[in-house]
Amino acid sequence: MTKGLDIFLCWGVIYAYTVIAILLLTAFVFNKERLLGISTYMLVPAFIVHSAVFIMRWYGTGYFPANGKYENGITSGWFAIALTLFLFLRRKGLRGVGLITVPGTLLALGYGIMTEPGGQAHGAALKSSWLIIHVLFAQLAFGAYLVASGLGLLYILKDNKARKNVAIPFYEKLPKLPVIEETMFKFVVYGFIADAIMIAAGSIWAKDLWGSYWSWDPVEVWSLVSWLIYGLTIHFRVSLGWRGRILAWILILAILGIIVTYWGVNFFMESSQHVVGVK
């Protein structure tokens, strides 16, 4: 019964996020402060239902939800929105980050529910404690990187107005550019550490499952490449002192590597189900 209910609720969450995404977009394009406030109020109940879906799924299958596209959508989206709300509560001015995280989550959930609504039986390969650590940190990294690119977008939007010397009260209310920039970097750091742990945990899991820590499998290579890109970004800032727009643009683009890693190359299923000879 819970299986059907979680899908029903998940559709509710998708609709709510759709409305919030539209409100956020309208708020930013037409500088409507009120809409921004409304979208914040809507995000809280939507996130509570999202959390309920996450818990129901976990409870229902008995395993951390990381099996297939639907569960991956729920989990990664949960982290992205949790981090967004955390920012909303800490700094009202940073609400614009939702402009990336909300549609991102919406698409991940929508894609998952359309392709694998019922979920799948839990393959033997997925029953591993290392996998939970691996997935948890993967989702955390995704959430943090997504927030970082959302902040990157916010930075560019505010900076555009500043460059044109147009003082729009709406943008004035956002934090100062250097503060957005620093927060954006904080999220990169957060994602980068989680990403490093996710790669290490993944390789330990791979050793027990396939017999070697690293086999240059496309998923492994994509995650290494995207981690290195964020490593380079950190070097740009720490070693070369790059700041501001260029960093913001890099972060907006770098998220594409992560999206390909998670959704482009089949994250778990294709590469691991052959294990018990049932593919």
Binding site: V221, W222, L224, V225, L228, H235, F236, L240
Partner: peptide, 19 residues
């Protein structure tokens, strides 16, 4: 720092090439 960044960028590119 430039040399470091160039080397890491080339390696990242090479790994990517494999895909």
């Amino acid at each position: 720092p430039k040399a470091t960044i160039i080397i890491i960028a080339v390696l990242t590119g090479l790994f990517f090439t494999g895909l």
